[in-house]
Design a protein around this nucleic acid. Structure first.
Lengths: 114, 114
DNA sequence: TTTAGTACTATGTGATACAAGGTACTACTT
DNA sequence: AAGTAGTACCTTGTATCACATAGTACTAAA
């Protein structure tokens, strides 16, 4: 049992939310997503991101188009589908509820209401 | 892919944090923990909690004592060990960092500092 | 042709929330 | 005494996901 493992566990489910959020601001290809996550201090590696994008695409939340690159192989630019946008809204609520629930549990001295 | 599954995934790693937090305020036995979590809108079932408590105990973060009950079988009252208290402090930091990272990713228009 | 850099893909492992089922103790009823 | 309900603790099997690792393929420069 160590902090690193717990951090990894805490990230589960949250990555999905972050990726959809990033794509809601416009098209991105995987390496860009990794960069943006890193900027926000959320380290994600290829082995995590690619399967996740594949899953989101297969579930109809994302679509992509190929685009040639002048500096390497072609890139897959992903974007949200209407279903993805709807799902993102629900995830946003879910995340806020989780944060509030955790705060209630960990700060019982400062109840939110009552 | 549905919201319920994502909720379950988001809870990973967070439950550990919540349970340690609850126990930092004093001894509790499992059913009490489940009740307190439910009050905070964090539904946890026995099949999740018991293995988790066992693991935390085996890792030296928790200890317990038996106490007779007037209304059923004896109860296991859990409490934090010094190691558990230290770990909780680190988890608290980890949680705050995660919340900030997610907020940065999902609200890029309102950077926290810069 | 070789090497380096970029980009995408696939496989196997470990951790964990949960469903479902089981054991055991107490108190009340018949 | 036997049966029932309620409470409490425990175990097993499944699905999901982050990650490490390794691999494929394209471009450009040496």
């Amino acid at each position: 049992m160590n902090i690193e493992n717990t951090k990894a566990q805490m990230k589960k489910g949250v990555l999905e939310f972050c990726i959809l959020s990033i794509l809601s601001n416009g098209e991105n290809y995987p390496s860009e997503i990794i960069e943006k996550m890193k900027t926000a201090k959320l380290i994600v590696v290829e082995g995590t991101l690619y399967p996740l994008l594949m899953r989101l695409k297969n579930d109809g939340l994302l679509s992509y188009r190929w685009e040639e690159s002048t500096s390497g192989p072609p890139r897959k630019y992903y974007k949200l589908t209407p279903v993805g946008e709807q799902f993102l809204k629900e995830l946003d609520i879910t995340w806020k509820e989780l944060v509030e629930a955790v705060n209630k549990t960990t700060n019982p001295s400062t109840p939110a209401n009552q």
